Amino acid sequence: MVDGTRIADVEAVPEVGSYLFTAEDAFTNERELILVPCERDPGVEAWVNECTHENQRFDRGDGAAMRDGQIICPKHGSMFDACSGACDNGEAAGTSLPGVDVTVEDGGVFLTDDNYTYLHDGGVADDDGPDSTSHIGF
């Protein structure tokens, strides 16, 4: 049995895109986190829902833009590997997304990171999150 909170069924994580949820960090701040598909075991990874270059959310409620196993920043187009979180292009080149520990077991995805406490599905309730001023379309 996993020592963590069930976030979602593995099937709820889209093949292309993300599953958005909110957790409380160690400093009691609400943080948006995303589950994304990954070709390596366990098949799902979790990341903080924010570009490392600027305060831009990947998933604004309708799934993160993804292409070829990479998460795309909606502002400048930097691409982050969905499995490792690493970015080797654009404004965020040389950075990596902050990871979040999850475990996949019995068809479910569980939050097992001691730095986060699961709160709810979806994004932070208020609209004070970062916005994109990009005209990039996906």
Rank of each mutant, 00 (worst) to 15 (best):
81 D>S: 05
42 P>R: 01
21 F>V: 08
28 T>H: 15
99 G>L: 04
118 Y>C: 07
107 G>L: 03
4 G>W: 02
9 D>F: 14
43 G>Y: 00
59 D>N: 06
98 P>I: 06
9 D>C: 13
82 A>I: 07
43 G>I: 03
109 V>W: 08
61 G>T: 05
9 D>P: 03
65 A>T: 04
20 L>R: 08
15 E>K: 14
138 F>A: 12
20 L>Q: 09
45 E>Q: 14
87 C>V: 03
87 C>P: 05
120 H>P: 01
109 V>F: 07
40 R>C: 09
133 T>M: 05
104 V>P: 08
10 V>E: 11
138 F>Y: 14
19 Y>I: 10
24 E>V: 03
109 V>A: 00
90 G>H: 06
26 A>F: 12
69 G>M: 05
73 C>A: 02
45 E>S: 13
75 K>V: 11
28 T>Y: 15
130 P>V: 08
114 D>H: 03
114 D>C: 11
2 V>L: 10
27 F>N: 12
15 E>V: 04
22 T>V: 08
25 D>F: 10
45 E>R: 15
129 G>S: 12
11 E>W: 13
94 G>H: 02
113 D>Q: 00
125 A>P: 01
69 G>K: 05
58 F>D: 11
56 Q>M: 15
114 D>V: 09
76 H>F: 02
112 T>F: 05
38 C>L: 05
104 V>M: 00
96 S>T: 11
104 V>Y: 04
54 E>V: 12
117 T>Y: 05
77 G>I: 00
58 F>Q: 03
70 Q>D: 13
128 D>R: 09
63 G>C: 02
113 D>W: 06
67 R>Q: 14
61 G>L: 03
101 D>M: 00
22 T>D: 08
124 V>T: 00
85 G>E: 07
112 T>W: 00
51 C>I: 05
34 I>T: 04
48 V>S: 00
37 P>R: 14
37 P>Y: 02
5 T>I: 15
13 V>Q: 06
7 I>C: 02
100 V>Y: 10
97 L>F: 05
100 V>F: 05
27 F>Q: 15
78 S>V: 07
93 A>C: 06
130 P>G: 14
52 T>R: 08
134 S>V: 07
118 Y>H: 05
118 Y>V: 06
108 G>F: 01
108 G>Y: 01
51 C>G: 11
62 D>H: 15
78 S>A: 03
115 N>A: 15
105 E>T: 09
104 V>R: 01
109 V>D: 02
15 E>I: 02
3 D>T: 14
28 T>F: 15
114 D>Q: 12
119 L>W: 06
54 E>N: 15
71 I>H: 03
88 D>A: 02
138 F>N: 06
86 A>R: 12
106 D>Q: 09
18 S>K: 04
77 G>C: 10
133 T>A: 07
47 W>T: 06
